[in-house]
């Protein structure tokens, strides 16, 4: 994508997709881009870390293996706390989702690395998978009764014409809120970092140190947010799966 001179130093420039190869299948452009590279790096980091640090024969784990086990237990605990015993089936999916978002965010924190979770299309796709999957799960578990999910018991009958549409809208907006939350956090954080980085260069004399200090602090905050958003994504997925089992 040819960028104009005015956009050269835009804080949003970092979100530009740059194709590295040009491939087309059936008229669709599936070029390998910097976003794809980030995804591949993310998946490589996750799979290599989880494979290399875990020695199946070791009873006593070393530090790195402990990290893998902690992550495993963290998500397993999250699932059993929110969904209970039904949740074991979805553990690989929730774990993959959590790791994908978490490491994707973390890879994005590396300077010059692209943050694929800052693209609404990616987060929306992930959220849609969760939404569609959970909806199918709900219908599989409850059949047509799944629609009672929108009916809140114990409310005066004249409230239902108001409440049912609200429930339906809130249900349908789940993938949007789920995806926009992650996307907006990543977008805002990285934009902020870039803006302050611009200040470092733009400020006269040594006053540029001040925004640099801010960048250091913000980087810490961003790493926290990177984890937090992955956690929120995972826990909301768990809660949605729980909803598919226990309607109300």
């Amino acid at each position: 994508m040819a960028s104009k001179d005015g956009e050269k130093h835009s804080p949003l420039e970092q979100f530009e997709i740059i194709p590295m190869t040009h491939n087309k299948i059936g008229g669709y452009d599936i070029s390998f881009t910097n976003s794809s590279l980030s995804m591949v790096i993310t998946v490589a980091v996750i799979t290599l870390f989880l494979t290399l640090t875990v020695n199946p024969r070791s009873i006593v784990p070393n530090r790195l293996q402990l990290v893998s086990e902690l992550m495993y237990n963290f998500i397993a605990q999250l699932l059993s706390d929110t969904v209970g015993n039904n949740g074991k089936k979805y553990f690989p999916f929730v774990f993959s989702l959590f790791m994908f978002v978490l490491i994707g965010n973390m890879v994005g924190m590396v300077p010059y690395q692209f943050t694929f979770t800052s693209h609404i299309i990616v987060t929306f796709a992930l959220a849609s998978v969760v939404f569609i999957g959970v909806t199918i799960l709900g219908f599989l578990n409850h059949g047509i009764k799944f629609f009672t999910f929108f009916y809140i018991p114990g409310v005066p009958f004249y409230m239902h014409p108001l409440l049912i549409p609200i429930e339906v809208i809130s249900y349908l907006s789940r993938p949007i809120s789920l995806s926009v939350r992650l996307f907006a956090n990543m977008l805002a954080g990285h934009t902020l970092l870039k803006v302050f980085a611009g200040f470092v260069v733009a400020m006269p004399f040594f006053t540029g140190v001040l925004p640099l200090v801010f960048i250091v602090a913000l980087t810490g905050l961003e790493i926290l947010i990177a984890f937090l958003q992955a956690y929120v994504f995972a826990i909301l997925t768990c809660l949605y799966i729980n909803d598919a089992y226990h309607l109300h």
Partner: peptide, 9 residues
């Protein structure tokens, strides 16, 4: 690049 991103995702 929506299609590309979705594909690689």
């Amino acid at each position: 690049f929506f299609v590309s991103q979705l594909f690689w995702l």
